[in-house]
Amino acid sequence: MITTGIAAAVNALMGISMGTDLAWVWEMVLQATWETLYMVVISTGLSYVFGLPLGVILVTTEEGHILESKGFNRLLGSFVNAVRSIPFIIFLILVIPLTRLVVGTPIGTVASMVPLTLAAIPFVARMVETSLKEIDWGLIEAALSMGANAWQVITKVLLPEARASIVLGVAITTINLVGYSAMAGIVGGGGLGTLAYYYGYQRYEDLVMWVTVIVLIAFVQCVQMAGDKWAAKITNQRR
């Protein structure tokens, strides 16, 4: 009784102040949330398909490591740094020709996944690199002393030992991409970014803005929590 009363009051208030139908707002937000989720999850996945091997290569080609190749390592490292130093908002515009080539249009949810994935790959590579460097060199040496080849060291020692740390990296990457996807939204990428920009910024509809913010906060919290839980599960299983 009381809740319906409050809902009615809020509805009325919103209706008066913004001339908006609340049900319509919910529908918009739900649609945009779904788009963001879809964009971010697929981009994260794709960025790991390329970023994980890249990270492994960055570590293993270092001086003294199992696939030592100093020149190649330096070249790859510089390339990764170069891509990472481009602000995402500029990167978005830079890759438009490529996006057009791959997707056919630079606008929309699917098109956004191209710059999101490309920007995330070097980031993922550095995250994976950090995770793999935490592993005690003694473990690698033990595997080598048993006659392991580089592939066996990577698949049986490096990746399994770094699993918990890599999972935390996935959570951080996902959260980063949520932020990037909002930027992509401003140039027509769809999702919560587009919604907040068109309705919140251009039409001064504060409610849409605030709901978007709350959804983003909730989303980021959930991703971080899930990452922490998963990583802890991996660690605890071993204790």
Partner: peptide, 11 residues
């Protein structure tokens, strides 16, 4: 080969 720090895989 065996080691001072054992070097067992924790995973």
């Amino acid at each position: 080969m065996i080691f001072q720090q054992f070097n067992l895989l924790s995973s």
